[in-house]
Amino acid sequence: MSRHAQFAKPGLALTAAVFYVLLSLSIKERHGYEILKYVEANSEGRVRLGPGTLYTTLKRMLDAGLISELIDRPEPENDDARRRYYKLSPRGRAALGTELSGMQHALKLAGKRRVRAST
């Protein structure tokens, strides 16, 4: 199975790290450290990426066409020329949508069965 096919298959869930990276880039383009901070804060500490895991994940996502590197640089005063910024690709947006609708379906099903999340 190619990497494109791996992520395009509807039944195949994304890993937590890939999901949160997609979510972070769905809002705006970010560089690595911004993504890392977003993932940690928004997963409430459940997903913690070190620099190595972050860039391994980004590499896989780049190879799979879920994200791409930003060619247009941000405003010069907010930019560091050597930093790389990433943005969501149409494929990544579709994968995120599929994942979110799968989650919504699972939540609806759990609601029907009166299963509640433990806090």
């Binding site: 560089h31 450290y33 620099p51 860039y55 590499k59 050597r82 930093r83």
Partner: peptide, 9 residues
């Protein structure tokens, strides 16, 4: 590809 970015992060 990512060495500099890893160190910067």
């Amino acid at each position: 590809q990512f060495g500099w970015s890893m160190k910067q992060t």
